[in-house]
Design a protein around this nucleic acid. Structure first.
Lengths: 342, 342
DNA sequence: GACTGGCACTCCTATGGCCAGAGTGCTAAG
DNA sequence: CTTAGCACTCTGGCCATAGGAGTGCCAGTC
């Protein structure tokens, strides 16, 4: 009973604070939410909540604001996520409908997310490490230069130019392509390094220079680009929160430019739960300690391939962000699986 | 004589204001720059300069700050651009040295620019319209799907997936590829639409469905992607100027997300001059009226292929930005021409 | 034992007045 | 044409004040 009301009070504080961005006091609480008790009672509860670390007071005579822990509790209480309205779903549909290729899907998705949540959106490209090579092409460009093209089953296309000291023998190249194709097509990316290295052994000594150059380039590409691509959007939404944390825009912008950091944040998302929320200091990145990240996996044919999400101030509208991120992730998954881009 | 000193006064005002970001008064001027006259004289000149619209006073008893027109005059007076120091040039060299492909060059360049100028940097990909198709590949993916790959002499690679109702005949596809290759390889992009359309006529009726699908996709790709790619970097530098124009970050961020706007700004750069500076209201984009853009073409084998530059507040250090942009453009040009990525 | 009303207390915020300083424009003289 | 002097204006910082919001605690009630 008592516990129950305390929870209600916390939830009320969070939702009021999220709405107004101002500390909320006991009087305001009983006015806006019809809890059946007096302000004094609420004050007792608030004192207890503060004791437990869920809320804090900026100064003696201001209202309370939630701590990271308070938000965490609040978020964990949101058991069932409210579905989007028909209009919203329609909107998502229309937005993605006529995307022509993977790049197009990614850019549209990021714009969609930013627009719906009014926050900074981030969409990761399907991770190579969870994909398979679909096809490999070796295209001679001139005597000493060729281009490797890897087509991945997620629709990603990676290209790389290779320069080799020896002049390129087209017959050998075709042979190499064929054997590479057999070796790595439809194999998980993780097995590629081993397989191409094994393959290299099977070539005669005289063909080695070319073969080695190509294989080295493939290995490099596979390593370098494993997870590295993503798109950002809606950075201007950061400025809307000027009022709330005025001095901290710069570190956030800086953090957003750190690719590795962002990828780690998205990558850390466990595979067990689909929807993940990390609040304030929970993401241990300097500069993002006043922001929260709501992210979700998206899948292709039921296999999770990457993540997408939004980044906003800790006092964001979690319910809305969560449902939007989840919905968008589902739509993207569906879209990727239906219109295979392979 | 008089005219000459006025100019000196204007230059002094601009450089002081750029350095301190505070209105500069007559006393401070004679102190810092050893003009051989008294503050009162300077005041007269300042009154005249204000009359002519080069400077303005925020309020009665503050110093003066340059207007857009004042900056313009100042910039036009910078006849010879100071070369970079050896260390700086060395730095640029090292930064670009081991770039492996075009994407790599573009990202490195944008980071380099942002870092050197402490401003927002923008680098446009080599424009397709000023390039030639180097090679075209048609890669069947499955029965109804194929991928078109266009390799452009600037090193850009464009890919597009085509879906066709009829099943793909590999023999026909090879033939089509060959004839497409003949038709458009080493031709300027602008002539591609005409040539492929002509080519379509030469095919027999039964092969038309496939041929048409491919050609339509090529046309679409050519149209859509003509100039559209660029990379941005250093957005966090915007926040550093919080003090100066605090309320205006949002519109600037928004403008930066408008691809078309940015491309137009870069594109407008005439072909006659290499280095271009547009100040404040000169770039007629809402939201960028308090910013200046310093940009330059860069070239590949002496032919300008695209632009790069920086965007900063109107009270930026023009001399430095101009020399940096010019130097980076030269280096990128050299790099692109030396290590042809074709 | 849980809730409530009352009350004293604290602390922030907004307001207004005030002063000093910086910078100007003007005038008259060199 | 330049300069010194002077009166004038406007801003920005500082201080003190008042008002208000919100709290914590205590004593009383159901």
């Amino acid at each position: 009973m008592l516990e129950e009301r305390r929870l209600a009070v916390l939830q009320a504080i969070v939702s009021d604070y999220v709405a107004t961005h101002e500390p909320v006091g006991s009087k305001a609480l009983v006015d806006r939410h019809h809890l059946g008790v007096s302000p004094a009672t609420i004050r007792n509860d608030m004192a207890a909540l503060e004791e437990e670390g869920y809320i804090t007071a900026p100064h003696t005579s201001a209202g309370r604001i939630p701590t990271d822990l308070g938000y965490r509790m609040f978020v964990d209480q949101i058991s069932q996520i409210k579905p989007l309205s028909a209009a919203e779903r329609k909107g998502i549909d229309r937005f993605l409908f006529d995307a022509v290729d993977l790049d197009d899907i990614m850019t549209r998705t990021v714009r969609l997310l930013a627009q719906l949540t009014k926050q900074v959106a981030i969409v990761q490209y399907p991770s190579l490490s969870r994909s398979q090579v679909r096809r490999i092409e070796l295209i001679p460009l001139n005597e000493h230069r060729l281009m490797i093209i890897l087509i991945v089953d997620s629709g990603r296309v990676e290209q790389r130019i290779v320069e080799c000291a020896v002049s390129i023998d087209e017959i050998l190249l075709a042979d190499l392509r064929e054997r590479l194709s057999v070796a790595i097509a439809d194999q998980p990316f993780s097995s590629v390094p081993q397989r191409v290295e094994d393959l290299e052994q099977t070539f005669t000594a005289e063909s080695r220079p070319l073969v080695h150059a190509v294989i080295a380039a493939i290995l490099e590409t596979v390593m370098e680009k494993l997870d590295e691509r993503f798109v950002l959007g809606g950075a201007s939404n950061l400025a809307r929160y000027n009022e709330d944390f005025p001095m901290t825009i710069q570190p956030v912008l800086e953090a957003l430019e750190e690719q590795v950091v962002l990828l780690r944040l998205l990558g850390e998302v466990g595979t067990e739960t689909k929807l993940s929320v990390r609040i304030g200091h929970e993401n241990e990145v300097e500069g993002l300690s006043t922001t929260s990240i709501v992210s979700s996996h998206y899948a292709q044919e039921s296999k999770p391939v990457a993540s997408l999400g939004v980044i906003g101030p800790t006092n964001m509208d979690y319910a809305n962000s969560m449902s939007t991120v989840q919905a968008v992730a589902q739509y993207v998954s569906r879209f990727l699986s239906d219109n295979e881009l392979k």
